[in-house]
Design a protein around this nucleic acid. Sequence first.
DNA 1: CGTATAGTTGATTTGGCTCAACATCGGTGG
DNA 2: CCACCGATGTTGAGCCAAATCAACTATACG
Lengths: 249, 249
Amino acid sequence: MKNRRKIPLEIEEPEAETCTLDVRLKILHNLPFFRSLTHDAIKEINNVFNDTKYHKDDTIYFSGDRSTRLCVVASGSVKLMKHNEDGKEILIDILKQGEFFGNLDPFGGMYNEETAVAQLPSCIMKIDSENFRKILHKYPVASLQVLDIIAKRLREAQEMIRQLSTHSVENRIAYTLIKLAEKLGAEKDIGLLLQIPLSRNDLASMTGTTPETASRIISKFKEEGVIQTGRKWIAIKHINKLKEKLDLN
Amino acid sequence: MKNRRKIPLEIEEPEAETCTLDVRLKILHNLPFFRSLTHDAIKEINNVFNDTKYHKDDTIYFSGDRSTRLCVVASGSVKLMKHNEDGKEILIDILKQGEFFGNLDPFGGMYNEETAVAQLPSCIMKIDSENFRKILHKYPVASLQVLDIIAKRLREAQEMIRQLSTHSVENRIAYTLIKLAEKLGAEKDIGLLLQIPLSRNDLASMTGTTPETASRIISKFKEEGVIQTGRKWIAIKHINKLKEKLDLN
DNA sequence: CGTATAGTTGATTTGGCTCAACATCGGTGG
DNA sequence: CCACCGATGTTGAGCCAAATCAACTATACG
């Protein structure tokens, strides 16, 4: 009856130790905001970065920590979250290789707004935001590109606000699954497999609901044959059906 | 019993026609991101801007419009909002003199994400975002400052998301009133008067609720003596009491 | 003044939260 | 290799905050 598989199906956990000079240069070069810089510039920039490896579930920094570092995911995956006084948490974003996070405005806020946790074994390249600003100052093109990325995140946040204000939980979960699929989906025989360990709790805190409600909706989607799931994994069989759900309401 | 005044109390509606060269230069100079530029640079920049006057409730642009303009509020006040298919709308922000909005990324999105409406008679200075980028490219300091502003907006949006996910409507309204008071409050005998026409509907769409619920909460606050209100205006008598509300829950 | 718009208030309904009991998975150590 | 246990996920029942629907009042504006 229940055709869910017993095994989490090969979620590849990337090696943590991929931070050789070569890899670093390549990553820096592929960063959207450094892409247009020369090789020499990248080399120079590389010197200002240092990197740290994290195990799964290690905390990279805590919300409220005084810190002025900008971080780049060199490998692995990072969860950004906020938590309330009462312990409730919300998951802001999941970042993959090449995405950045942390503080890039040493004057505005000297402390971190969110908590960053390695979702998988990860290598994080860090730079003091003061230095990063010097780089941006020196390379205006990079500056504009960073601007675009932040602007995009702002748009996404506003879209989230719109959804929280006006859409049902079912809608929001469908939307979130689609987004995750676009970002982290890998074609498998079972469907578009989300290449991250995603618990009901994670999904709930991404959509502003409770694990119980998330579970109910997921069960419903499963019954409808739209997705397949197991413990900490989700695969989407019919992304179109999910997208249809967005239209109603 | 009800001590609310009959008259909207002097909300000064700024003149729409304050877009003389002098004023323009002054405004440009006071823009947070141009503040550090020389007078000559400002003059040069001024040439690339042009301005348009809007009456109250005029639409500056519609969500979805194809446009690559960046806008700056020279005078007046602008509402940014999104609306759903079903007509429901959310109010993203209210902007005053010196704040900017619109599209500054001509490559990312060529169309507007929100609708912008003049909340008061307003003068809006506009620049093609391509030209704005040229300016930013030329003046890296400005670029970094724009970055900081966008980053701040992102943080605010994320805070809003957190609140929508975890706080009660009463909390959110209290929070929103405090924010508005900080931004738009003017000391009057009745308290901190919010210098904008703010309907229950506006308040509701800023906090992700319905006008009815907003009205109920506002009534409650009024009974508690925390605020005074009338048609399209709110004055805060005891902002501390509002702030206390944030702590519970 | 009269009318349209904005705001209030009540009654009813409901989506989703809470609390609670139970099922299942997967890792660990015997 | 299996049994066990903690973490994770599921499901049900009851409840509550807030949405909806609806009737009504107050306000400003022409």
